[in-house]
């Protein structure tokens, strides 16, 4: 199962791209651990996770068509 993860704002400076594809991540905790191992700077970053465009507060199981995004603090306006 492959998941597309989208990055925005200052996180794109850390990741170096706006989208990363991950395999073998069954839930959002596994996804975060994989990302933090690959991009250690994420550990110092402030962000929330959105699944299918809704911010989640607790671990969520991921299906292959899930749209996952890491959102740093908003700064519109």
């Amino acid at each position: 199962m492959e998941i597309s993860v989208f990055f925005f704002g200052q996180l794109t400076d850390i990741i170096g791209s706006r989208q990363v594809r991950l395999s073998d991540v069954s839930d959002t905790d596994a996804l975060e651990n994989t990302l933090k191992a690959r991009y250690p700077m994420l550990r110092q970053s402030k962000y929330v996770i959105a699944v299918n465009r809704k911010i989640i507060r607790e671990k969520m199981d991921l299906t292959s068509n899930a749209e996952v995004a890491l959102l740093p603090p908003f700064s519109g306006g």
Partner: peptide
């Protein structure tokens, strides 16, 4: 505070910094 929009501030001399809003409700 709630719309997923980000501002990258370009500086006159060089480089950039990320805009910070005073109300970051969700974070």
């Amino acid at each position: 505070s709630e719309l997923p929009i980000w501002g990258k501030e370009h500086l006159t001399k060089e480089g950039h910094q990320w805009k910070i809003n005073t109300t970051n409700g969700k974070h």
